[in-house]
Design a protein around this nucleic acid. Structure first.
Lengths: 186, 186
DNA sequence: CTCAGGTGAGACACCACTGTCTCACAACAG
DNA sequence: CTGTTGTGAGACAGTGGTGTCTCACCTGAG
């Protein structure tokens, strides 16, 4: 007897590995019957919707845990930088969750999800603006580009981990360092 | 009467916008009948395979145009840096092509395509190693990570362009700058 | 003009997937 | 023991997509 969370976890893993997996395949990956999966989620759409919802909530929780908006409003460079480092590291941890949720075409077509996603991104952009004003990050690029960059590095970290090119242990530090310092020689 | 290339271009655009588009939808987007599309490509798989093939060829051509391997072998820091900048800019130009081809699950399961992709990536990693030895990029990160980073930034640039957050005109410079200098304040 | 070749619309068979439902069975509580 | 609840396997209907094929029509060459 699995909890709903366990079901969702396993479903996410399966769909991450193969976004085209059928409900029968998802059910098998979870270790339950297809009828049971349908009892949890009436439709495939409902399942995907809830997975995406969870990822957005995770994102939101991440922002709240480091009090991203509060730190941004403080204008304190040290706090902002610490907050940024923590968030980047958290993105690496959550890359597996987000990769599916943020790229699935079905999700982006759901108004509630797309709206929520835009809100969270806007909050993040505000944080980067504050980081610019505080002198933590460069001011000569659009703040929204910095948000896209973190997304790109999150995708990169996911791929590097999947292919075994980089050890999980140092991944977060690598992302933080790459984001802040770039790849050019010092 | 459209050429095969025009058909492929239009198909790629359609599938980029909606990877789940049916053959009927792809044909309509191209402006031809479905039967005609099938006359060009016997199966959906054949179409996708050829699109991916084209993207890989484009990637390969990009490497050849700047003589990436030759420049790497020269060990000349200035040439290597110029080559790197050119390639990064080219990635931004080609992001729309690559985004679909490099992420489609079907493609990654085709042995010939996956093998070719691995070869091209290995050549790129070799280039980054040479760039490290020449003192162009930092040596304290795995060269293969630099390859993943360029991929991540390519994805980021595609998203930024799609959402209209960044103007196409300055996109390439932004990617180059972000890659080399990072986001941290100077 | 005729003929050949290409095209798009539409029909058809097949298939995989989805959603729905039944039923036998297992587990648990009283 | 009985009764209740939950489960998985399997059957079924419906749907959308795929591949295949036919045919009327159009275009271009001779």
């Amino acid at each position: 007897m699995q909890t709903r969370d366990e079901v969702l976890d396993a479903a996410l893993r399966c769909l991450n590995a193969d976004p085209t997996a059928s409900m029968a395949e998802v059910a098998a990956a979870i270790g339950i019957g297809r009828a049971t999966l349908h009892r949890h989620f009436a439709t495939r759409e409902a399942l995907v919707h809830e997975i995406a919802q969870r990822s957005l909530e995770r994102w939101e929780r991440g922002q709240a845990e480091v009090d991203m908006s509060g730190v941004a409003a403080s204008g304190d460079a040290e706090r902002i930088e610490a907050c940024l480092r923590t968030m980047l590291a958290a993105f690496v941890q959550d890359a597996e969750d987000f990769a599916y949720a943020l790229s699935d075409p079905c999700m982006l077509s759901q108004p509630d999800l797309a709206a929520r996603m835009a809100e969270l991104q806007e909050l993040e952009v505000k944080f980067f603006r504050a980081a610019q004003e505080a002198g933590v990050v460069r001011r000569d690029v659009p703040a929204v580009w910095l948000s896209h960059t973190t997304y790109g590095l999150m995708i990169a970290s996911r791929e590097a981990l999947q292919s075994g090119d980089v050890a999980a242990k140092g991944m977060a530090d690598l992302v933080v360092s790459t984001f802040l310092d770039g790849a050019g020689a010092r």
